[in-house]
Amino acid sequence: MYISITRQHMDTTFSQSSSDFVDYLEKENEGKRPELQEHFFDQYNDKIAPEKVVREIDGNTAKLKKREPKFYSLTINPSQRELRAINNDPALLRKYVREIMKDYAASFYRETTVGVDSIKYYAKIEHERTYKGFDREVKENRVYKAQIAKLENDIRKMERGELRANVKQLERQIERLTAQIPHRIDGRAIEQGMKKPGPQTHVHIVMSRKDTTNRYSLSPGSKYMESESKLNGKTVKRGFKRDEFFGKAEKTFDRLFGYNRNYVESYTARKTFIKDPHRYFARLLKLPVNERSAAFKLLGKAGVNIPNLNIPKSKVELALKTVKQFKKAMDVARNAGSIGI
């Protein structure tokens, strides 16, 4: 499970309104019959028109300055393993969203606990993802395509009389490189813009910066986790406990669906890896044999080359050779808004 929280883009190329973002989230519905379209939903309603989403978010911005974000986006990216655990069922995913929005509300540090009914949010399920330029498959294929493009350019130069070479030899090189392109879907080389295979379901949530009364600010982008300050002589609590929210979101999924989460799938593990890779792999190698083997297989699916699934616990340094690879895979996952493990 990978969850990201992003503030509204505020540079000159973006509208002050939420309409651009809502229009973007409607893109998968284009050309689909009404019964096949996904609708916006909130805590209690399954079918909400995009026009209402824009109207409610844009109209809930009292006392916010022009350069302050009016809304935040929360993206929930279950792994393919997690999606298989719920049979990729949109109804179960909606149920999960409604439960973790309770966790989200409770993660605000305030004088009184914030409830989910104080959060103005609208969620939308999407089923497709496309390959981006930073995806591993695209980048590795690009090396071969660049060589092929150069050879094709050389052939054109020969035809114009600008270069002397053996055309047949260049054509054979092109054929060989084309056959060597490593990543394909149904025989076609993967490139930027192609749809990713397998279950890719994820959820986008647009959340108002203000609570449902349009009086109080509830910003998950606060730089404070738990902080207290003086305002008009009174102590005021502020902040958003991100770590607590991310941890609760995983536990809620596991509780709702009886999911057996492996160590490498956890937010705690990813955070440990970033802060202390030695500790991460030491913890990984202390897992029971079956769980450790499953962990390495999951890492392999994320693009990490594990040299030996039965690495002795004493050889932590050997496992650390994969640190750079794993960090690269994690960075790609974060950029793509999705994670494979």
Rank of each mutant, 00 (worst) to 15 (best):
G221E: 04
S4E: 13
K102R: 09
S227Q: 13
S107V: 06
N60M: 09
A105F: 04
F246H: 12
Y96C: 10
R215W: 05
P78G: 10
H9Y: 08
R176I: 08
I3A: 11
E159K: 11
F281I: 07
L318W: 05
E162Q: 11
I125A: 12
N77H: 13
E191S: 12
L320R: 03
E82N: 03
V203P: 00
N335C: 04
E162Y: 09
G161Q: 03
N262M: 08
K120Y: 04
T6P: 00
V138C: 03
Q169R: 14
G247P: 00
R261V: 04
M101K: 03
E250P: 01
S314N: 06
K132H: 11
K32E: 08
E228K: 13
K210N: 15
V236P: 02
A333R: 00
I86N: 09
F257H: 05
R110S: 02
K237P: 00
T268D: 15
E82P: 00
K70L: 14
K27L: 06
I205E: 03
P78R: 11
T322A: 15
K132Y: 07
R160H: 07
I341N: 14
E82A: 13
N214W: 04
F40A: 11
N141D: 01
S79D: 10
S222D: 15
E111G: 04
T61W: 10
H278Q: 09
G161H: 06
V304A: 14
Q192F: 01
N153Q: 11
K52L: 14
H183E: 02
K168L: 14
F273V: 04
L163C: 01
T212N: 07
S314W: 00
K237I: 04
A295E: 10
G193F: 01
E152W: 01
N60T: 06
E35G: 01
L170T: 05
K157D: 15
Y24V: 05
I174K: 01
R261P: 00
P307C: 07
Q325S: 14
K275H: 10
A302T: 02
K132F: 08
K223P: 07
K271Y: 09
T252E: 08
V143E: 15
G187V: 07
H39N: 13
V97E: 05
A189P: 03
K297W: 04
F14A: 13
S227D: 14
F108P: 00
V22K: 09
A269W: 01
L287M: 02
G59M: 07
S4F: 09
L298S: 12
K47V: 11
L320W: 02
E82K: 09
G187A: 09
V264H: 11
E28F: 10
K139S: 03
G198S: 05
M101E: 11
R160E: 08
I311Y: 06
M1I: 03
F40R: 10
T130V: 12
Q8A: 08
S229P: 00
G187Q: 09
Y224T: 02
Y131G: 09
V167P: 01
K275N: 13
E171Y: 03
P69F: 15
P307F: 11
V97R: 01
D243Y: 10
K301G: 03
A329W: 07
I181K: 12
N29V: 03
Q16W: 06
R255C: 05
I5F: 14
E126N: 12
H39Y: 10
P182A: 15
D42Y: 02
S222F: 02
N60R: 01
